[in-house]
Design a protein around this nucleic acid. Structure first.
Lengths: 256, 256
DNA sequence: GACGTGCAGATTGTCGACAATGAGACAGAA
DNA sequence: TTCTGTCTCATTGTCGACAATCTGCACGTC
């Protein structure tokens, strides 16, 4: 019925403004804080302190925190409050099991479609990783690595794969922070990356998945401290920042 | 050093009691309500009403709701509150894309390990599905189908795959409710199930994944209303229950 | 009669406060 | 000295209330 599409253009002329709620903002801020290490792994998060730093009340903070609990980034123990998750031991392998699920599916989609734009984006992300690897900043290398994998999944064009991957990127970073030897990254790029890229553009699904599996197996054993043969570069422990950006300037010590 | 493991047995003698928080309880209750259809798809959820039905205040309810938002089961629009998600159109295919990611990974693990106990559990779940399919209760068939897929993933033994699947089970049910023709299920069991089971016990990873892909392609086209060739059985629309169990008896109309 | 405007009702978003629970310190007994 | 019990303090969990926002209806105007 035409009456349902009344005045103005029938097809969406302007699309919905994606306003962000306060909870969204807080969630983003908390993610950044954890990802950067400003909120150290295992640290209990004092609700009053964090809330005041963000310039909000405890209610929206707690709501945001529940989202992170849901994606396994925070853990909540009933009487004891919440703390940043620690991902170590068997959990590390589980993170990579889940990553394999997501990334393998993305890889299959991409290999099957061989979409030029998608492949180009992935290649670009790989180049960023190559550049970062030439430097000595482990944080930059780690970021580029995670970004590459996120781009890989994004290129598959699935909302759910993308969202799931972003949670896994966080968990991977947390696992790195939780590593017994401290945060470190592989200095040289694993050959599996090029194998993966080649397989994707050649449309060889199985090879692409196999490359991912090998790459993840390496990563798991490195994170568990089993494999000391690969050359890594560590970050100084003093680099742990202790504060993070409040949502806006008026935040911090302010009377309501 | 032995001094670090002092009194009592060194290795965990009793394991942590997993007490559930109120937020956990509410989350479970909301899930049940949505899964059963008591909270209809697309329905805005009045916070005061639901909270009073559950016998809790709005704060813990809102916290629980944020978890469901994170799983894509509820949607929150800033000024307008939350409502049960509607999963239709392209989102249906996306749900199955994600399910393929999770279930294919689980299938690969199982096919690779060929763990007898795991295969037995899956077989048992399949038998339940067979039994349900012999009846005429579409809800029972749908439940058994989803349960089968959940068991399949559980059998892989990965916490994250399991958790992810439980969210996807919810989304699949929501997609069914959102279907243009109303809730319906396939009357006969797709032959892809037996192919899958055979491939799993034979250790044929690729065949198992292919069976899942085919099965999901069928499901997507059925849910989109494209495919009217398969025989389905629908549920009466009047069956929508409108209330759901409060957490405990003292709930509802009570002065605090 | 149709459209735009303003008001009223209801609902959400946020806050501060209170109650309940847990952690750590301290003292006393074995 | 070591363990146990108690006390205190800090923190979390929950609530009711207020302010901000949105929806629907009625009114006035073209």
């Amino acid at each position: 019925m035409a009456r349902d599409l009344p005045r103005s253009v029938g097809r969406a002329s302007v699309l919905r403004v994606p306003r962000l709620s306060t909870v969204d903002l807080i969630t983003i801020e908390l993610r950044k804080a954890i990802f950067s290490g400003a909120l150290p792994v295992g640290a209990p998060l004092g609700e009053v302190e964090i809330a005041s730093q963000l310039g909000v009340s405890r209610s929206p903070l707690r709501e945001a925190a529940q989202r992170l609990v849901q994606d396994g980034i925070l853990v909540a123990v009933p009487g004891r409050g919440m703390s940043v998750a620690v991902i170590a031991g068997d959990q590390v392998a589980d993170v990579y099991e889940m990553r394999l699920a997501i990334e393998a599916q993305a890889a299959r989609r991409i290999a099957r479609s061989r979409d030029a734009a998608a492949l180009a984006r992935i290649d670009a992300a790989f180049q960023e990783l190559v550049v970062a690897s030439e430097g000595d900043d482990p944080r930059a290398i780690g970021d580029a690595d995670l970004e590459f994998h996120q781009v890989l999944v994004d290129a598959a064009g699935s909302d759910r794969l993308t969202r799931s991957m972003s949670a896994l990127v966080m968990q991977t970073r947390i696992a790195s922070f939780s590593a017994p030897e401290g945060y470190s990254v592989r200095r040289s790029i694993s050959p599996t990356y090029r194998v993966l890229l080649d397989a994707l553009s050649a449309g060889q699904e199985a090879d692409a998945v196999a490359a991912l599996e090998e790459q993840f197996a390496e990563a798991v054993s490195r994170l568990r401290g089993d494999d000391l043969t690969v050359d890594t570069v560590e970050v100084e422990l003093a680099d742990q920042a202790q504060v993070f950006d409040p949502i806006d300037a008026r935040a911090a010590h302010d009377v309501h």
